[in-house]
Design a protein around this nucleic acid. Structure first.
Lengths: 116, 116
DNA sequence: GATGCCAGTTACCTAAAGGATACCAAAATG
DNA sequence: CATTTTGGTATCCTTTAGGTAACTGGCATC
């Protein structure tokens, strides 16, 4: 197949779609935390520095709605709640990896131009 | 060299650094537009749907401060102003490409699960 | 029976992002 | 000479994101 070339309008539209889903300080950090084995509410909260319960609760709901995270209630005693990432969430990995790389490099760059 | 494995705390930190620089509805669309040959203020505005002059002006200043865009005034008659992306801005390309890909796929997915 | 952990909810508030509208001077165009 | 284009500013306003703090009910522990 020929590699499709997107128009600039399409590129902008798709980037904005992506931004709409992942933007904000917390959604990606939360997904990273869950993906790393933090499945309980308090575990996630501990893994994501400085997030409050209120914000975490709200963001988890958003992520559920966008089918990136699944909430499961186990009928144990006491009930436990588990959050897991969906396969769809994992499709974000290449993008997130690039974001991590860029952020790491960016921080190194800032040190160089603004030393001491 | 051994491939360095980042801790979850580091991953979260770097992602948040990146988000801090690119977040908002407009910064990436503006960079895409400039990179595609829209160098004049009004050209950029036309290329980025629905952005207002006020917001574009402010975002361009932010991008200049972050060394992602350069503003050049040509002493012609009348004076012309040209915006160009820096080499540093181009280092965002792999990430932006992944975001475009994901957004395209995401839109296709939404069509499937919510047809007509 | 007081304290603490879990998984949140509720109400309130502030700061920032973004939008709407109007306006400006200088030059070009019709 | 009226209009349009360029590269923006200035005001004002609304919306959203995010933070603070208190509280809940159920269970477990000391």
């Amino acid at each position: 197949m020929a590699k499709k070339e997107l128009s600039i309008e399409q590129k902008i539209k798709y980037v904005q779609d992506t931004l709409f889903v992942i933007s904000g300080k917390w959604k990606l950090p939360i997904m990273i935390a869950i993906n790393n084995g933090n499945n309980r509410f308090r575990d996630i909260q501990r893994a994501v520095p400085n997030i409050t319960t209120r914000v975490l609760s709200k963001e988890l709901k958003d992520l559920e709605e966008n089918r990136l995270v699944v909430r499961t209630v186990y009928d144990s005693l006491p009930v436990t709640v588990s959050y897991t990432v969906t396969p769809y969430c994992k499709s974000l990995k290449p993008m997130v990896d690039e974001m991590i790389k860029w952020g790491e490099n960016h921080r190194a760059m800032l040190k160089k131009i603004k030393p001491a």
